[in-house]
Design a binder for these strands. Sequence first.
DNA 1: GACAGCGATTGAAACGTTTTACAAGGTTTG
DNA 2: CAAACCTTGTAAAACGTTTCAATCGCTGTC
Lengths: 332, 332
Amino acid sequence: MSAVGIKQVAETAGVSVATVSNVLNRPDRVAAPTRARVLEVIERLGFVPNAAARTMVSGRTKAVALIVFDVRNPFLTDVARGCEDTMLAYDNAVMLCNSDVSPAKERRYLDLVTEQRMQGVLINPVQPTAQWLASLRSRGLRVVLLDNVADLPDVCSVAVDDVAGAEQAVTHLLGRGHDSIAFVTGPMTMRQSVDRHAGSLRAFDLAERPHDSLRVLEMAAFTVEQGRRAGERLLASARRPTAVFCANDLLALGLLQVVLRAGVSVPGDLAIVGYDDIDATEAAAVPLTSVHVGGYELGQAAAELLADEIDSDVHVHQRKVIEPKLVERASS
Amino acid sequence: MSAVGIKQVAETAGVSVATVSNVLNRPDRVAAPTRARVLEVIERLGFVPNAAARTMVSGRTKAVALIVFDVRNPFLTDVARGCEDTMLAYDNAVMLCNSDVSPAKERRYLDLVTEQRMQGVLINPVQPTAQWLASLRSRGLRVVLLDNVADLPDVCSVAVDDVAGAEQAVTHLLGRGHDSIAFVTGPMTMRQSVDRHAGSLRAFDLAERPHDSLRVLEMAAFTVEQGRRAGERLLASARRPTAVFCANDLLALGLLQVVLRAGVSVPGDLAIVGYDDIDATEAAAVPLTSVHVGGYELGQAAAELLADEIDSDVHVHQRKVIEPKLVERASS
DNA sequence: GACAGCGATTGAAACGTTTTACAAGGTTTG
DNA sequence: CAAACCTTGTAAAACGTTTCAATCGCTGTC
């Protein structure tokens, strides 16, 4: 319907298409009266430039993609908002995609990014190998790794120092006199689990305690449901720990719910510390002590990095590490 | 860098560009040996078609936008996943955008949709007036209204029968013998508030109770934070109700937290019912009775409607209404 | 009075596809 | 054996912009 193009505008205003284009892109190159006349016609005809045509000339769409595991994870939603708000300031649209931790879905979206000739991609990678990265690079893609500090060269990344975060959490518990501590986490194949485990052990080292007083419960996923399962296992076990450090708030919330209902007092009988500090921690039945990460800021930082890689021609790749900070609340 | 286009492929394979295009779009029109040779070259050169060029010819990008208030609202995240998963099956990408309930941001994204010549837009509208809709229509946009049944003609919409949902919730409370009930909601300017209020009153009518035994607390937003505020006000009030119906789960969660900490027993001293049935309700300290809406299904339905409007040329606009259903849990 | 310099405007090429109309060659049909 | 018809492939136009080089009037300057 709205087949009104730059050509029609030019005709109506009695100028050339080049002038209309200039009014849009370099208004200073055009005399004021002409500019006014053209703008009036644009308004009257309801002309909206065709981004595809623009892309054909410039070679790139003014958009980036953000690929995360799952937007239903509140932490990742925060990250997404940070990216979106920042990218919008750079006049870039953000396309949000869910990989569901599946390499196939991830690949599909990366193909889309290439087809659309987007400016770049912010990605929470499923398996960030050097080879994988090289294949993206060979397609001329600009990449920023999210929540994953790269051992890889030639790529920007933003991550959280999870080792330090976990160390703070466990040191806090040890300081309160807790002897036997459980560490509840998701799959040990994920970097998040590994790092937060390492941090816990480092806290034990610093306090000169033996590693074997840290009991590890590896669950199938970082969800509330799995947290409940962990709680049940804890309740059923012979010698119950006096404190639990959960590698993620969702796990902690599930666990909290189960133990409270079983009549265990928190933190009296059992102290709990979570990780990520999502909004819901504050709102839990017993407000949860948690390691604050700042997903929004992480998203912002990643977007800034990508924006720089897009704009600047002297861009140097950076690894940005965010220092998390323990927030003490009632649960510990 | 990757300046490899269809032309280069054609040259290398010793055929015309038209043939390469045919291999991609109508493989049956090309002889098997030729096809194989072209595909091999495409693979070897790592050719990826340029979507912008394709869009120029066809006039439309294979993508739709999904504009919601805020992805940090778990209900809307569910909707988003439903849309994304469904649209992907129709080979359409989904661009997720946050309007923050601001007409200005909404407009900005709608401009983007038009510039990009997207297939259509799924929108959780800020102020769906007839005039607003007409302005979209005049731009040739295909629109599906989300979570908003249109009093407007000529547009598809998917909504929840919030009046019925609220009626179920309040009837449930009345049935349990609760006399004085409070209705806690967000801004009364929002359709959600108005409808859920109307439903509550209808339950009173059905039970032949006077409207004035329903106390209304209008809060500034549908958030946990505001729920806490509501809880404080309730605790401070002279004659405390015996039951609360919250127009949204986030409000209910905040309220629950505050009253529990004040030593009020739930549901003994105070029964609570929420709305939306987000994941967190099940995981709350006291699992929350809530009105289940099914955001994922709502998203799916909306996406199907848009897909039909895109594909079919005999499309007729539909209003789809989802019937919510009360899920009883421990809080009431 | 010719000419350089400048601001405003323009014509036309280029971007990478899809698609239409047509050609060349081979096969069936009457 | 010619006419009609497939099958396979091609040349060229079209899509709506941006941008480069060129043109056109002017105003001063020597």
